[in-house]
C-alpha cells in the first residue's frame, strides 16, 4: 500500500508559523514564495533545514536551486521525486 504523504501540507504549516506568523490566508500551493517576499535570503536556510530535518532527506548542492523551493507545489514535486527515487549504493 502506498501512503500519500503531503509534504507540502506540513511545509505549509511551517511557513505559516515561521514566516507569516499565523496568517496563511494568502498562501496557496502555487503562491511564489520568493517573489511575494514570504521567504527571504536567510529564510531559505530555515526552510531547507526544516525540510531536511522533517523529511529525513539531505538536499544536495545541485538540488538547491530556486525551482525546487519556489512554491509549495514545487517543494511537493521535488520531495516526491527525491523520496520516491530508488536507493542506489
Amino acid at each position: 500500500m502506498k501512503i500519500e504523504i503531503q509534504y507540502s501540507e506540513i511545509t505549509k504549516q511551517f511557513i505559516i508559523d515561521n514566516f507569516l506568523f499565523g496568517n496563511g490566508a494568502k498562501l496557496d500551493n502555487d503562491t511564489p514564495l520568493f517573489e511575494k517576499g514570504i521567504i527571504d535570503s536567510t529564510g531559505v536556510l530555515e526552510l531547507v533545514a526544516f525540510v531536511e530535518d522533517n523529511f529525513k532527506v539531505t538536499v544536495a548542492d545541485e538540488e538547491l536551486v530556486l525551482e525546487n523551493f519556489s512554491s509549495l507545489n514545487a517543494i511537493e514535486k521535488f520531495l516526491q521525486s527525491k523520496i520516491n527515487q530508488p536507493v542506489t549504493n
Binding site: F34, D40, S41, V44, L45, V48, V59, D61, L64, V65, L66, F69
Partner: peptide, 10 residues
C-alpha cells in the same frame, strides 16, 4: 555555497 544561486535571486 549551496545557497549561492538562491541568494542571487533576491
Amino acid at each position: 555555497k549551496r545557497l549561492a544561486q538562491t541568494l542571487q535571486t533576491f
